[in-house]
Design a protein around this nucleic acid. Sequence first.
DNA 1: GCTTGTGAAACGTTTCACAGCC
DNA 2: GGCTGTGAAACGTTTCACAAGC
Lengths: 239, 239
Amino acid sequence: MDGVVAEFRALSEATVARLPEYLRALHMLAQAGHDTVSSEALANASGVTSAKLRKDLSQLGSYGTRGVGYDVALLVEQIEHVLGLTKRRNVALIGIGNLGHALAGYAGFASRGFRISALLDADPARVGERLGELTVRHVDDLPEVVGTERIAIGVIATPAGAAQEVANRLVAAGVRSILNFAPCVLTVPEGVEVRNVDLAIELQILSFHEHRRERAEPASRAGLPPASDGPGAPRVVRS
Amino acid sequence: MDGVVAEFRALSEATVARLPEYLRALHMLAQAGHDTVSSEALANASGVTSAKLRKDLSQLGSYGTRGVGYDVALLVEQIEHVLGLTKRRNVALIGIGNLGHALAGYAGFASRGFRISALLDADPARVGERLGELTVRHVDDLPEVVGTERIAIGVIATPAGAAQEVANRLVAAGVRSILNFAPCVLTVPEGVEVRNVDLAIELQILSFHEHRRERAEPASRAGLPPASDGPGAPRVVRS
DNA sequence: GCTTGTGAAACGTTTCACAGCC
DNA sequence: GGCTGTGAAACGTTTCACAAGC
């Protein structure tokens, strides 16, 4: 499908985690009509340093042009290839509560080659509910659904108490990629990839920094308007 | 309030990110009736190695007892203190769409000393809507709301196009901690902490690993039941 | 005997600085 | 002249291994 097949040398985990951000920035640049972009410009748009960006892209074996920059369209193609986004990945969402509803309806979810192909829940009262084009099925149907829908990724949005059991069932059905929103640690066999998103943890990390600042500046709180001096250097931290 | 005030030496960012997980595990252990816990046991419950756990806790200046382990209640107290969870932090949620509704109703959000104290949206049609005990206000009221509700943390759940403007307003109103769910890079002044949660990025990272495995095992897909050999070593990856 | 706390080694990531190339 | 690609240095994190202490 694409001429230049990037060697599958080992990409560092840190690099992989940043590729999606580069991709997002590149899509925006493409839409804005840019054909090429310098490492400096792309780095700014992605919230990283240019050196880091160049190191990352060099790992892809990707070739920019010295004196010019990177070809936007080519780079998009390469990153999508490395991330395996050329193939559609089917997603099953388990736990159709508050958060599950939001995830099911989240447009950005579907945008990058992913498709929520199944909704499941353990509560018989929710089974049969229609959400968009999908009907909620019982979690007992998971093995069948994984097969017929060719599910590659399971998203767990159940309460913490149910998450491990759901993970076990996903793994038993052959799913090897899990995105876990339940606030708990999942134990899975070797070879299964789990990523956790925990909202409460993010808040607690922010709380630490708030607390830290309170210590630094003892009691100078009244109505100070801006945090500090103007819009200085960008400060971006990734979860 | 607490006798042993931990010195505020520099905690590494990696350690800070894990403290909330230890806290969660400790709360579960406490509820299960444990008074003390070994680094080995707590590490298992938190999905890390015991050496890492001990290094982390030693940074707190926290004292376990050799030959015995850590006092659960004491450790909870220390971690909560370091994370600044002894004080209630008020949260403003901006963007009451699909995801915003889910976040507003998410119980786990409120569980650890956080309280969603304000809901805001730019759409006049949504202003005035009641959600639980709160009424959605217009985002123009942000400066006032931040003052009266003593908002410490802003959660952005708007579309990407609106996020930077909302961030600017939050910062101008004095908020210095932002949790961003919009799929974009925010630029903020020095001293403002931003954490990003992007669902699409998480899926893309999982996609990479799927793709990687496809390469490793060319075409052996039919109906293989378990991923590999039984429930081996736990494999947990944090976002 | 068992478990913590911690130097030292190993590893991974980021930054620097500049050679190489357009 | 300008920008990429990359060794080398700096930095941060994890793992190892064991001395110290209950």
